[in-house]
Design a protein around this nucleic acid. Structure first.
Length: 255
DNA sequence: ATGCCCCGTTAAACGGGA
């Protein structure tokens, strides 16, 4: 079973690339972030015509998530239960017996901002919900744009980024709290090339210079640890003519 | 470096992203 996550930075712009990527990478499920579409504008029929099931949850201008799958998703959940939120950031569903949770974690903007406080509250709520979700679904995968670089080796210039958004001790502690629930960073189960990033700034030729961050993650539950065969970042779509600033991350689980 | 690029929205010397 293959699962993937991709922040597409506007599905209206990136739909052709998503369908092209799915054709070349026939995963069992793909979660999307930053669709930036209200639900009435979601391109349901384009996915259906290509043979994909899809669940979606969006809003105007910002955020927005989707769950694309070969088999239909059941028990679909949108956002975090009990956490009142104006922003569309979570979609979860059960696909072929696997609980798949896709998230677009808040950016946080700056450590001293209201948005950072919201990020922390959101992460607290996610943590508490996932604790229950893992009880109900031992086979669970949490993936998405976490907007957290868990370690200095996930940052192209850790000195410059020290204490900056995505790299603060508070965000990294929240990432470790999720791990402590019984989740494993699938990417780090394997030897990986140094300077592996999932996001590169559009500015300043950052992709060409390989200046990026690893902020898109796939965390698998402990019950799945032994089934993880591979996990990688697919840089190919970042080389497209009009790319998202994020690359897809893919995990391969044995059946 | 309060800059760079890209997106959606709107008509901005914009906000937000990361």
């Amino acid at each position: 079973m293959k699962l993937a996550t991709w922040n597409v930075n506007s599905l209206a712009v990136r739909l052709p690339q998503v369908l092209e990527w799915l054709a070349a990478n026939p995963v069992d499920a793909l979660v999307l972030q930053e669709t930036k579409l209200t639900d009435d504008k979601f391109p349901t029929s384009d996915f259906g015509a290509a043979g994909w099931q899809v669940q979606w949850f969006g809003q105007k201008t910002y955020n927005g998530v989707a769950l694309v799958s070969r088999e239909p998703a059941t028990a679909v959940q949108k956002n975090i239960p009990g956490f009142a939120d104006e922003q569309a950031r979570v979609i979860a569903g059960t696909v072929a017996g696997m609980r798949v949770v896709g998230g677009y974690f808040p950016n946080g903007q700056a450590p001293d901002s209201d948005k950072f406080a919201y990020k922390m509250r959101w992460l607290d709520a996610l943590h508490d919900w996932l604790a229950a979700e893992l009880q109900a679904h031992p086979n669970l995968v949490l993936m998405g744009d976490f907007n957290v670089a868990p370690e200095d080796r996930d940052v192209y210039d850790p000195v410059a980024w020290a204490g900056q958004i995505h790299c603060t001790p508070e965000e990294r502690a929240q990432f470790q709290r999720l791990v402590a629930l019984g989740l494993v960073d699938a990417f780090r189960l394997f030897d990986q090339p140094p300077k592996s990033w999932s996001w590169w700034d559009y500015r300043n030729l950052a992709f060409r210079k390989n200046q990026g961050l690893r902020i898109d993650h796939i965390l698998v539950s402990e019950a799945l640890r032994g089934r993880v065969r591979a996990c990688s970042i697919d840089k190919l779509p970042r080389k497209n003519e009009r790319p998202s600033d994020h690359a897809p991350v893919v995990v391969d689980l044995s059946d």
